[in-house]
């Protein structure tokens, strides 16, 4: 059974069973593959170098749209312009955090530096955002409904399995954030 993250002398520490690490590794990999750009064969190399992406479009997948949301409400044109300038680097920073978190899964005991902890918290959050879309969590009532699912022996279909996975990642993230808040309190 996983242990909650704790803030201590060594930094933020946690413990995960091999099966839990395997689960997280595959979740991180799934989100990485969603965020990895599709074919870039025909793009302008100069634009790529400075991080522009003139061919970017608002994602059609809801979960991806949640990871890469529109930045201007009710203004598709302005949102698209914003995407052209920023989406590539946003994808890259998210992928970087997910990869860093995945790398940390090589040992049972997790010992996180402040920067590891930041990567972990955003990686777990992105995983939760994707799972929440797959589970159709649209409001607080939906979220409460999913929270009811706590018993792994109840996992009988894909949806109940996803709900249990979602609740596990939520618990893990909550414990991590509490440890991070404590480390903010004790900062010099």
């Amino acid at each position: 059974m996983a242990k909650a993250f704790k803030n201590g002398l060594k930094g933020i520490t946690g413990f995960l069973e091999p099966a839990e690490r395997e689960l997280l590794r595959s979740l991180f990999a799934d989100v990485i593959s969603m965020l990895e750009p599709t074919d870039r064969g025909s793009e302008d190399p100069l634009a790529a170098m400075i991080g522009l992406d003139m061919e970017v479009r608002e994602p059609s997948d809801r979960a991806l749209r949640r990871l890469l949301p529109n930045a201007v409400k009710d203004d598709a044109g302005a949102s698209l312009e914003f995407r052209q300038l920023t989406e590539r680097s946003l994808r890259e920073s998210k992928i970087g955090a997910l990869r860093a978190a995945a790398l940390g899964l090589d040992k049972d005991e997790l010992v996180l530096t402040p920067s590891d902890a930041r990567h972990w918290s955003t990686a777990l959050n992105d995983v939760r955002l994707v799972l929440a879309e797959r589970l159709d969590i649209r409001d607080e009532a939906d979220a409460d409904h999913v929270h009811q699912m706590q018993d792994w022996s109840q996992a009988e279909d894909v949806e109940s399995y996803l709900a249990l996975v979602y609740n596990f990642t939520t618990w893990l993230q909550e414990s991590l954030v509490q440890a991070m808040l404590q480390s903010l309190d004790t900062r010099p």
Binding site: L68, P69, A71, N125
Partner: peptide, 18 residues
């Protein structure tokens, strides 16, 4: 605020500029 919005999206918060 655009720079903040990108940072918030990096954290997974839903931010817009207006």
């Amino acid at each position: 605020v655009e720079q903040h919005a990108v940072a918030m999206h990096g954290f997974g918060l839903w931010a817009t500029v207006e």
